[in-house]
Design a protein around this nucleic acid. Structure first.
Length: 369
DNA sequence: TCCTCTAACACTTTTGAATCGC
DNA sequence: AGCGATTCAAAAGTGTTAGAGG
């Protein structure tokens, strides 16, 4: 594993630059194992989802900086559909197979250490190893529910809050990484992904190293991925420190997708807004390219809005929340004038009356409660 | 026929309790 | 008595496969 030496870094352009209500204005988030993610992304990351829940591999691991040491934070992750399509694996590539299924209940995984002071989060990287994905829409274990053959990306939320119950009042920031996009599957489709997983995932050693029944069986039956002594996949040449440094950090707060696309070529591909035909294959992350991570605004998650907008509409934002942040330092940043996406109004779920309701909200599931 | 999903399999890793020594 | 290191068994996790089901 090369987690420590590979970091995808993300900075946050805070708005406004001053104001006590935005104390975490310099929050930065790094994807710890970004090299591994990129290796998978270059092939077309697939994540197994099962009825009882399956961990992600690679798993989400990030490090934070810029937090206030004595302020409490809650760190959360949810999964956002990349687009409105479902896919199928055909002739060694992904093809669009129609419109996406209606979105399952949206759940958020809360990091088990939450809430914790900034000093705690700054000490070491955060691992979301225990986050599990399921295709069971009736799941009661709090796993994140996804549709098979659909594409998603994880979204990280850093919320300044003293408890899970005050999260809804805390200012928060949202981050995502382009290389973490994946296709949810119930069985691996791309043999290259299988090979990568076997090479990197310690739990798959039994399949990597020879001598086991499974391997002999796989090999005897000509499984394309069942090679017990699978060769180590050479590290992509683009993983040099120099190329990593080229990954300019960029976050755009309060930009519409159109505005984002005008900021640079990489924004046309992230957040995922492009035509599905552009994404049929794995999207190699060209390191020479100014590929970057940006803050993925919660309300700007357009692919999800068709599903969520109705829900948000049920919980109108208090009028006072829409005041400029400078005047109301404690107001939610997404409700500030800086947030210019009126066509996709984001309403903080003030009106959620219980955790069951919250669990259906992207930021308020009971996953880890 | 094709595609997707599930359960079982054999193996490794992780976890936590028990034990030991200082 | 308290603490840390070590050991060991159980639990949890892995990808592959055959077969079921739509």
């Amino acid at each position: 594993m090369h987690a420590a030496d590979s970091v995808s870094n993300m900075s946050v352009r805070r708005t406004p630059p001053t104001g006590e209500g935005f104390q975490h204005s310099s929050i930065r988030i790094n994807l710890e194992n970004s090299d591994l993610w990129k290796s998978f992304h270059n092939v077309g990351t697939e994540m197994i989802i099962t009825k009882h829940g399956r961990r992600m591999f690679p798993h989400c691991s990030v490090s934070l900086s810029g937090l206030q040491p004595f302020a409490n934070y809650v760190i959360m992750v949810d999964m956002i559909p990349v687009d409105g399509y479902k896919y199928k694996w055909k002739k060694e590539q992904w093809e669009v197979a129609g419109k996406a299924e209606p979105q399952p209940p949206c759940r958020t995984y809360v990091h088990p250490d939450s809430p914790a002071p900034g000093s705690h989060w700054l000490k070491q990287s955060l691992s979301f190893l225990k986050l599990k994905l399921t295709n069971n829409t009736l799941d009661q274990h709090g796993h994140i529910i996804l549709h098979s053959m659909h594409r998603y990306y994880p979204r990280f939320h850093v919320v300044q809050a003293d408890s899970l119950y005050t999260v809804r009042w805390g200012p928060f920031q949202t981050f995502s990484f382009p290389e973490t996009t994946f296709t949810a599957v119930t069985a691996y489709q791309n043999p290259k992904i299988t090979k990568l997983k076997i090479d990197h995932n310690p739990f798959a050693k039994g399949f990597r190293e020879g001598g086991t029944h499974s391997h002999k069986r796989c090999r005897a039956q000509g499984s394309p991925s069942g090679s017990p002594s699978a060769k180590k996949v050479p590290k992509p040449s683009h993983e040099s420190p120099q190329s990593l440094q080229k990954m300019r950090l960029h976050t755009e707060k309060g930009l519409t997708s159109t505005e984002q696309s005008q900021k640079g070529p990489h924004f046309s591909a992230w957040p995922p807004e492009q035509d599905a035909s552009d994404r049929l294959h794995a999207e190699p992350l060209d390191m020479e390219y100014d590929y970057s991570c940006e803050e993925q605004m919660v309300p700007a998650s357009l692919p999800y809005n068709s599903y969520r907008s109705l829900e948000y509409g049920r919980y109108p934002f208090p009028t006072s929340e829409a005041e400029p942040a400078q005047e109301q330092p404690t107001v939610h940043p997404l409700a500030t004038a800086e947030y210019t996406a009126p066509q996709h109004p984001y309403h903080h779920p003030y009106a959620y009356s219980n955790t069951a309701d919250w669990s259906q909200h992207p930021l308020f599931s009971y996953t880890c409660w």
